[in-house]
């Protein structure tokens, strides 16, 4: 099995706190990994390091067998969908403009129409991105992430603030990308039910990794689920 990501003894320290503490795990090609954890568990921090946005960490992160400190070429193989993309509401960019931004080679423009159709946003292609609903915007960002035929899709809590109908459509798209196109998916989420339905692997993160393995092993183990829920609840109370 081809190893797509190997994270080895990753520690990320801020002046007053360890955001990630000695985390190690591997993601194989074709995995659909759900990373779950409460707010402040370090999910976004982990992604920032995996995407080379943060380079101040201890340990190693390898993509396709190469240390990402040595080469950033791996980024060409990755599609990234952020939590809530920040842009000016009246930014003069159409859906087509936004998807095209992700395109590495100008020559692949025909790919844009194909992907917009696949994600059911073809009719919106001339609309400005700021005019769309949250769910539609998120599909545009998936389209942008997919336009270079990535081997890995990384999604950071992509459905925050989106209506249920759009979420369901979004999840069915992810499932199809993973099963039909064999795209490895690494996805962080709060939603245990959704992770249970979609992911075949689970990483349970709360600064340290307290579970990583097959999704069925996690969800069939009531103790683990309870432990996660309690930790999550405590963190929730702490934040409120």
């Amino acid at each position: 099995m081809l190893k797509v990501v190997e994270i080895d003894h990753l520690t990320i320290e801020y002046p007053d706190v360890k955001a990630i503490d000695d985390v190690s795990f591997t993601v194989n090609q074709g995995d659909f990994l759900g990373i779950i954890g409460p707010n402040g568990a370090g999910k976004s921090t982990l992604f920032a390091s995996m995407l080379s946005l943060n380079t101040k960490y201890k340990g190693t992160i390898k993509f396709f067998g190469t240390d990402i400190r040595k080469s950033r070429n791996y980024l060409k193989e990755i599609g990234y969908v952020p939590q809530k993309p920040i842009f000016e509401k009246n930014f003069p960019a159409t859906v087509n403009d936004v998807v095209k931004m992700g395109l590495q080679k100008e020559s692949d423009e025909s790919k844009i129409d194909e992907i917009l159709q696949q994600l059911w946003i073809h009719e919106l292609s001339k609309k400005r991105i700021g005019e769309l609903s949250g769910g539609q915007q998120q599909r545009v960002f998936i389209a942008k992430a997919l336009v270079n035929n990535p081997k890995v899709l990384i999604l950071d809590e992509p459905v925050t603030g989106i209506d249920q109908q759009s979420i369901d459509l979004f999840y069915s798209i992810l499932k199809e990308l993973n099963s039909k196109q064999n795209i490895t998916i690494i996805w962080s989420s709060h939603d245990l039910d959704a992770v249970n339905k979609l992911a075949n692997h689970v990483a349970c993160l709360n600064r340290t990794l307290f579970f990583h393995g097959e999704s069925d092993d996690f969800f069939s183990n009531d103790d683990l689920v309870k432990q996660y829920s309690e930790a999550s609840m405590q963190e929730h109370m702490h934040h409120h």
Partner: peptide
């Protein structure tokens, strides 16, 4: 053009796209 537009639209995503 693409690099100028992309980094103006969203710096973080532009960085991830190289």
């Amino acid at each position: 053009y693409r690099q100028l537009l992309y980094s103006t639209f969203n710096e973080e995503q532009a960085k991830v796209s190289g």
